[in-house]
Nucleic acid binder design. Structure first.
Lengths: 144, 144
DNA sequence: AGATATTTGTTGTCATACTAACAATATGTA
DNA sequence: TACATATTGTTAGTATGACAACAAATATCT
């Protein structure tokens, strides 16, 4: 396969990932909702798994632990999450949604689903399956 | 199409884009080559179009202008590029590779091609065509 | 039990993404 | 010509990503 034919995939990946994030961010901003997309990803995940420590939460959301520490700091300041001391391991915190955090996830989940649907216009389920397969393959090719 | 089926594409996009960048960065680091992937993108493009102003260069590489200003600042400090005053428009600079910049692009172009090939293992030309179509569709769906 | 290694979370540093605001310059128009 | 508007590049502020180094706590191993 010719090198130049696919020499641009990394550019396409990068700009598309940024566009998706940017679009969702603008929806948040448009409703004066003071949260970032990456913060959203965390609270959305906490709504499903409300008893993870920071390392687990970082792993499952694809963040590294310093990044997660800072996002959790911000979310706690905003009153959306809280750190709780782990029962048996004093190194850990488990992270939990507050009442406000739970409300926020409930309010924004349908809006985010709508945003995702918009991105997917003119594409099929087969496209999704192919996209997932291709991206997973690239990821695994480069994984240590 | 079920919402939950493709609710993860933005996560896949994001983590794959980061993995690709990270992999290339580690190759640079492993050879003690003091440059970032984003800086590479700029000098690679300058090697093809050596007479663009910053706005054009930002557009063509998918950067915004503040980001480009800083990357060019760094590249100039490293002696890889230089700003030249525009002949007729005193607001502009045109950006040019130095001799060192040209050498660097020549040296690293085959290595970067090899890195890209590695990412593409187990994938076909048809996969590339589909990936490009899907990513372009998403991009356009969300474009202003 | 005690030395050593690992895990967990934090902090610091640099680079990039995005937004807003700004100065200098160019352009369009009355 | 004079004024309003647009363009170009820069600076500042905030958030995130990647990496390195660190302290505290825990696990492992002899």
């Amino acid at each position: 396969m010719a090198t130049e034919l696919f020499s641009t995939y990394s550019y396409l990946l990068d700009r598309t990932a940024r566009k998706v994030k940017q679009y969702a961010q603008r929806r948040f901003n448009a409703e004066n909702y003071d949260i970032t997309v990456d913060q959203w990803i965390i609270i959305k995940r906490l709504n499903q798994n409300n008893d993870l420590n920071q390392t687990q939460l970082a792993e499952i959301t694809g963040k590294d632990t310093p990044t997660l520490t800072r996002i959790i700091d911000i979310l706690c300041k905003k009153g959306l999450t809280e750190r709780r001391i782990h029962a048996t391991d004093r190194r850990c915190f488990t992270v939990h949604l507050t009442e406000l955090g739970t409300q926020t996830v409930a309010e924004w989940t349908p809006k985010m689903a709508e945003i995702r649907m918009k991105a997917w216009e003119n594409l099929t389920e087969e496209d999704y399956i192919n996209l997932k397969r291709i991206l997973d393959t690239i990821y695994n090719n480069l994984d240590d």
